[in-house]
Structures are given as C-alpha cells and as structure tokens.
C-alpha cells in the first residue's frame, strides 16, 4: 500500500469531507469527530457517487413507534437510492456482512518526509498536518 496525501487537517475539519482521485479511483475522505475515514466513491448497489450523499444519524428502534437517534454525522446515505453506510467501516446498515463499500486506512502525518507518501499535485510543507489515505 502507498500513502497518498489528500489534504491538510485544516481543510477537512469535523463534519467535512473531500473527494479525491487516487490511482484512478474516486475516494471520499471524511472527518467524523476529528477522526478520518476514507471510502470508495462508488455505491455497490448501482454505482452512484456514494460519497456525495447526505451524512446523517442512525435511526434504530426497539419497538414500533419508538425511535433512537444517535451517531449523527456517521451514516452516509447514497445520493440515489438512500442506502445507508457506516462511514467508519464502509458497511451497509441493512446488510453489514455482505453489502459494503471499500474502506481505506487513513493516518495523520505531520512534517514532510520523502516517499512513500505521494502527494498528488498537492503542495506540502514541513509544519503542516496532513491527511493520508493508504491505497
């Protein structure tokens, strides 16, 4: 795997996202509560650009008429048919075992070091903190 610098931590603040191209793949990078997650930008259902969907919370229920609403900002709804994915794992809500989107490891790196970090046309400086996606 190679690490790719996709932006500074300032650029992708809590609740924000950035969509990048890495090796011909479109990948969405999300900041949820200060932690970074990266998902392939293709819905396994019908190929929509999943990472452009709405970020919302998780609605669950113990019984008809009762609602629990939690994990705001952690559930990504596909912009087409609304399938729900857990941003932190890439798994779909309705079928976590078998329906999922590829999730990539991320890390936050400070300072600039030569290779294996590939900054795709992204200028880097020594003092900044960068978000790195490992593909």
């Amino acid at each position: 795997m190679t690490g790719h610098v996709v932006g500074t931590t300032d650029e992708i603040g809590p609740g924000q996202r950035k969509i990048v191209e890495i090796d011909g793949r479109s990948i969405g990078v999300f900041n949820v509560g200060g932690r970074y997650y990266a998902l392939r930008n293709t819905c396994p259902h019908a190929g929509a650009r999943l990472c452009e969907g709405t970020l919302s919370g998780l609605v669950t229920s113990g019984a008809p008429g009762e609602y629990s609403y939690a994990r705001e900002g952690e559930i990504l709804r596909c912009p087409w048919h609304g399938w729900e994915f857990d941003v932190t794992t890439g798994r779909s809500w309705f079928d976590p075992a078998r329906t999922r989107v590829r999730a990539y490891e991320t890390s936050v790196e400070t300072g600039y070091r030569p290779g294996p970090y590939v900054a795709e046309t992204y200028p880097v400086e020594v003092e900044q903190a960068y978000v790195v996606v490992h593909v």
């Binding site: 929509a48 650009r49 452009e52 969907g53 709405t54 709804r77 912009p79 087409w80 609304g82």
Partner: peptide
Amino acid sequence: GAPRAARAD
C-alpha cells in the same frame, strides 16, 4: 425519500 424526490446529485 429525498427533497423533490430527486437524486441528491
């Protein structure tokens, strides 16, 4: 399911 029943994109 969505505003104007439309795809979000």
